[in-house]
């Protein structure tokens, strides 16, 4: 669905943000985009949506160049940014004015989502709602537009705990084979079990793009008391260590995304090698 080749981007000449970045994304997946502050997560998302233009390289979204901002491409992109603005009108007026631009907009689904999220659309104008309510509203609108590509930048930021659970449920039901979700987040715990593919952005490149299944096959995530030599990465925790080791057997453990992320940032080269060997062993 999305092909990025050789992307070079920088806001200022002195500090390139992406260098020869390659990435392929498919439909039917919920991608989690992880990276340190300033690694360029938001910028990558903006490049995909055509909000900023790369200095070099090519991006194809549903076969078209997003910088062209063609109507047919825009009709299939929902972008839910971290900061946004809603006008001082009621929901009905907003929907009436904006939903027509999305040919697949599903009004009954929208109403369902509003109910699920318990957003007070009849009482308040959009601009007068709290940040969390506005966020849920934008998410509902984006999902109801039934676009093929949904990009979210820190969607759970600002949501209270019940809303986060509602969000997970909504996401679980919204994934279909022809849709692709890209979620940039720091709060992996909020999206635990929803993300099926992990992309880690670091040092101007994509250093990991693997499914949870691939990661569970290649690595073992265990809580240990001692650290045998097979452990690749470990963090101190209560009662021992949280560790990552190479998965030689056929064991299946739960992928700890936070641990994995830290490990990738510290010892990325080893991970790339290990991941490659695992692939080769499995698929050779």
């Amino acid at each position: 669905m999305i092909t990025i080749k050789n992307l070079n981007f920088s806001y200022s000449k002195s500090r390139p943000l992406f260098k020869n970045l390659d990435l392929n994304l498919q439909g039917g997946r919920i991608y989690g985009l992880l990276g340190k502050n300033g690694a360029g997560k938001s910028t990558l998302l903006k490049n995909i949506a055509g909000l900023v233009y790369p200095q070099e390289g090519s991006i194809a979204v549903l076969g078209k160049d997003p910088t062209q901002r063609l109507v047919e491409t825009l009709q299939q992109i929902s972008f839910i940014p971290e900061e946004f603005h809603l006008p001082a009108v009621k929901s009905d007026a907003f929907v009436k004015a904006n939903s027509g631009f999305y040919p697949d907009f599903d009004h009954s689904y929208f109403k369902e989502l509003i109910q699920e999220f318990a957003i007070p659309v009849h009482e308040q104008r959009l601009a007068d709602m709290s940040y969390g309510q506005k966020k849920k509203y934008i998410i509902s609108f984006g999902l109801a537009s039934r676009t093929k590509l949904i990009i979210m930048d820190e969607p759970t930021n600002g949501l209270d705990i019940p809303s986060k659970a509602q969000f997970r449920k909504v996401m679980a039901s919204a994934l279909t084979d022809d849709r692709c979700f890209i979620i940039s987040t720091h709060q992996v715990r909020d999206l635990d079990n929803l993300i099926d593919t992990v992309i880690v952005l670091n040092d101007r490149k994509v250093v990991m793009n693997a499914t949870i299944d691939q990661l569970a096959n290649s690595f073992l995530f265990r809580k240990m008391v001692e650290l045998p030599s097979t452990v690749i990465y470990a963090e101190q925790a209560m009662g021992g260590y949280n560790t990552i080791s190479v998965n030689s057997g056929d064991e299946d453990s739960k992928v700890d995304l936070e641990l994995l992320f830290n490990a990738v940032l510290e010892q990325k080269i080893q991970f790339e090698n290990l991941l490659n060997t695992s692939y080769n062993e499995q698929y050779a």
Partner: peptide, 11 residues
């Protein structure tokens, strides 16, 4: 915040 919606509006 406003610009993103303006630019991404499918027109």
């Amino acid at each position: 915040p406003k610009a993103i919606f303006e630019l991404l509006l499918p027109a």
